[in-house]
């Protein structure tokens, strides 16, 4: 009697679990798994639109703000043996390039990406919009801070940046290193550290603390600056004429993707000019990669970003090697 009671309870729990987990696991033919490091608040409406456009059921996994992009990239690395993601849509480029070098991406030549400028396409990735690193302050300054390179002066502190190991900040450091060379870049970050730079969890935190007056200057992303502007916060964009950096987003298909055909369909939809336009509208502070030379492209959120039009187009192929040279020294500087 007692035995049958225990077994009946156990069987009941087991059946309920099987039913529930079967319901959880979506086996539909139109499923595709997207790992996405674009801000959830902006990406979600776009993903819903993409679902309508493609007829796919997109199950998205987002990164937290605290571990931007690097968190998802590490997850993909950890799942290398048994991947579950199909497509990786990154808000920054560096991690995609690193994964490409590590052989984690599937080559794919999308027709929809052929109208992108050649430097924003790789054999296994394609660019999707770009953001810019911008210098912001709370009140217009009476003196001239021409570029981020001038921030190391102790008289300008407190200065805030986000963690250079994660997200667009790592792309920013890599770009500076590829332009200035590794020794000068490391010297710059050491000087920033010496002048008590505040390293914050995210670019949103940098923008917010600058708007609050806690920081005198902040290096943040164009979208984070505009997000604060929209909230009516007092934040001034410094129209720097040198050392400006663009951080393109990227999309790629992962090797051994469980749903390869659906992954291609989603890749095509994300890199399309139509989606890029939707992204720039949905997420002010993101600019089209297809119209970098048009002045209208640099008007976003009611702010003129045209000072970024002449930003040098970097050689992204060198980024992985450059990052490997600076990653550990940067880690030592900011630990």
């Amino acid at each position: 009697m007692k035995k049958s009671f225990f077994f009946s309870i156990f069987s009941l729990c087991l059946c309920a679990s099987v039913v529930f987990f079967s319901a959880c696991q979506t086996k539909t033919d139109n499923r595709v798994v997207l790992y996405c490091s674009v801000d959830e608040v902006y990406a979600k409406p776009l993903i819903k639109q993409l679902e309508l456009q493609t007829g796919l059921q997109i199950d998205a996994l987002f990164d937290t703000e605290a571990t931007k992009t690097a968190g998802l990239a590490n997850r993909i690395r950890a799942e290398r043996a048994r991947g579950r993601a199909d497509v990786f849509w990154s808000s920054a480029l560096l991690q995609t390039l690193l994964m490409s070098e590590e052989g984690l991406l599937e080559p794919y030549d999308s027709l929809n990406a052929r109208d992108l400028p050649p430097q924003f396409r790789g054999k296994d990735w394609a660019g999707v919009g770009t953001r810019a690193r911008v210098l912001v302050t709370r009140t217009p300054q009476s003196f001239d801070v021409a570029t981020v390179a001038h921030l190391t002066g102790g008289s300008l502190k407190p200065v805030g940046i986000s963690n250079v190991q994660f997200g667009t900040a790592s792309d920013w450091a890599t770009t500076l290193a590829s332009r200035w060379g590794t020794p000068k870049t490391l010297h710059y970050f050491r000087a920033l550290k010496t002048s008590d730079v505040r390293v914050l969890p995210g670019n949103g935190d940098v923008a917010r603390q600058t708007a609050q007056g806690v920081l005198r200057f902040g290096v943040t992303d164009s979208d984070d600056y505009l997000a604060l502007q929209r909230q009516g916060k007092s934040l001034v964009l410094m129209q720097t004429d040198k050392d400006n950096v663009l951080v393109p987003g990227a999309v790629s298909i992962l090797k051994n993707a469980p749903h390869p055909e659906n992954a291609k369909k989603l890749f095509d939809a994300i890199v399309s000019a139509q989606n890029e336009t939707a992204l720039t509208k949905q997420m002010p502070g993101v600019f089209s990669l297809r119209r970098l030379n048009q002045k209208s492209n640099w008007q976003s959120g009611g702010v003129d970003f045209s000072f970024l039009m002449n930003t040098p187009r970097d050689n992204y192929a060198k980024w992985p090697q450059t990052w490997r040279q600076i990653r550990e020294p940067l880690n030592q500087i900011f630990r």
Partner: peptide, 25 residues
């Protein structure tokens, strides 16, 4: 949850945590 949730498996604390970082009060 922030570590183990699967694709499409967000629960409310996750968007709250992300939105807080983004400053969308």
């Amino acid at each position: 949850t922030v570590l183990v949730h699967g694709p499409g498996g967000d629960t409310l604390p996750l968007p709250i945590f992300n939105l807080l970082h983004a400053g969308l009060a």
